[in-house]
Nucleic acid binder design. Structure first.
Length: 424
RNA sequence: AGAGAGUUGGCAGAGUGGUCGAAUGCGGUAGUCUUGAAAACUAUUGUACCGCGAGGUACCGGGGGUUCGAAUCCCUCACUCUCUGCCA
């Protein structure tokens, strides 16, 4: 959520930022917000004045009663009642405007960073660079959905029977590969200075609002009506919400956390071509890294996070490329986002395995997450996060790229976790 | 899940209708003293919004109500603790 003060002080920049996201009536929206804010301030001032009068009378009444001046007290009561009534009406007005303003603000996306290229869809994301060699696969090489059947390591049919489409069973070496990847990712994150966290995988409504899943994206999350809890779509939500409402000291920063969780996504309406096998699931595992940073450090932290994830892919021996997301593909909350995609040799496709985003103070403003700097001034922090990494597509690429006649070769770095070097 | 007791400032803990944003203690910060530190002493020490400012307003778990006036009374929700039950 953008700060009203920011909108007011950087009006032109905000309008242009929204236009970059193809919001047509950006100017109108900004004007409307500033008008509402002025209205809110005026109403609040009026209400506060009325309350101040009422409070004053109340104190007088107290003293009059004590000294036995009943008649005077009765007079003051009448005046207090009047002011109180007035304040009540104004209060209702303030609340109404505040709610409306808040609601408007919730629906305004973050302002893209200047380096974000203009573009309507993922097709216009900018490929920054490509690293690693695409595998030379023999004729007759198979996509991963065939390989998992051949080696009986993941069972979609069983998932259909027990849960539904998109909830596979991992079996034997498949399950072990999952465990190995999780351990590898977490160990690397801890080595990079992240605090390992095992968060809850359900969240309440307030947390959903804090990181921006609510309102608007409730349709993407599984919801348990009886307890009003949402299944998390990513560990970002519980981990970032650890600090919701907090006021941190400058010397405790940055906060770096990493956590492994299953992630649940309804993916309503997003099934179509290219979603076979592990490419898109309702439940998948992911290790997420989250950083809470001072504004001055967030850009550097962002770059370090990208490098961390690239290092993971290099250690796994997967060819990857780095994308700078264009304005049309940038998520609502982010101001700058890099995607990392791995090349999956048999599908001959790039698969997104990580999104590393800087949210600036957009989430922090929702979360009311601030810090007190060394000059004792409080200000909003910056939040960042990235997948490090999402498992299914990494596994898909490993299966496809490492297939041989004898079986699938397990990347060296995983072998100490798997205890085997080939899936056959 | 049943019965009971709670939820007050960074922490502990007083306050059961009137100048309470809230005693007191601890902690924090600054200063005095000291070669330095400790101790002691003194002062200071919540957050947010409105206002150029003086200042005003709100917040004692959340929401609502009673009253001229609520931390204090009522309703409601959430959470915590104790006992019983159940359970990994």
């Amino acid at each position: 959520m953008l700060l009203v003060s920011y909108i007011s002080e950087n009006k032109l920049e905000v309008i242009q930022g929204l236009q970059k996201r193809y919001i047509e009536n950006a100017e109108e929206i900004v004007e409307e917000i500033l008008t509402m804010d002025a209205e809110r301030r005026q109403s609040q001032k009026d209400r506060d004045d009325a309350l101040a009068e009422a409070n004053k009378s109340a104190k007088e009444i107290g003293m009059l009663m004590k000294s036995g001046q009943k008649e005077e007290a009765e007079k003051a009561k009448a005046s207090a009642s009047e002011n109180k009534q007035k304040a009540k009406e104004l209060s209702a007005k303030v609340t109404e405007i505040e709610e409306e303003l808040q609601n408007k603000l919730y629906h305004i996306p973050n302002i893209p960073h200047p380096s974000v290229p203009m573009g309507k869809s993922d097709e216009e994301n900018e490929v920054m660079y490509e690293k690693g060699e695409k595998p030379q696969l023999a004729d007759g090489s198979k996509p991963h959905w065939d390989l998992i059947e051949q080696y009986d390591i993941i069972d979609f049919e069983l998932g259909n029977k027990v849960s539904g489409a998109g909830f596979p069973f991992y079996k034997g070496k498949g399950a072990r590969m999952q465990r190995a990847l999780v351990s590898f990712f977490l160990d690397e994150a801890v080595a990079a200075g992240y605090l390992e966290i095992q968060p809850p995988i359900v969240i309440n409504e307030a947390s959903g609002y804090g990181t921006g899943q609510l309102p608007d994206k409730e349709g993407q999350m599984y919801f348990m009506e009886a307890d009003k809890l949402y299944m998390i779509p990513t560990a970002e939500v519980p981990i970032t919400n650890m600090y919701r409402g907090d006021l941190l000291q400058e010397n405790e920063l940055p906060k770096k956390m990493a956590g492994h969780t299953p992630c649940f996504r309804r993916e309503a309406g997003s099934w179509g071509a290219h979603v076979r096998g592990l490419n898109r699931l309702h439940q998948f595992d992911k290790v997420e890294i989250v950083e809470i940073q001072k504004p001055s450090e967030s850009a550097n932290a962002h770059e370090r996070m990208v490098k961390h994830v690239e290092m993971l892919l290099e250690k796994l021996g997967l060819p990857y490329r780095r994308l700078l997301l264009c304005s049309g593909d940038l998520s609502v909350n982010a101001n700058l986002c890099f995607d990392l995609e791995v090349y999956s040799g048999a599908q001959e496709r790039w698969l997104e395995v990580s999104s590393i985003s800087n949210f600036g103070n957009y989430q922090a403003n929702r979360l009311k997450l601030r810090y007190r700097d060394n000059h004792k001034k409080t200000q909003l922090l910056h939040t960042l996060n990235g997948s490090a990494l999402a498992l299914p597509r990494v596994l898909a690429a490993i299966l496809e790229n490492n297939q041989t006649e004898k079986g699938i070769l397990v990347p060296k770095v995983l072998q100490k976790y798997t205890g085997f070097d080939i899936i056959d």
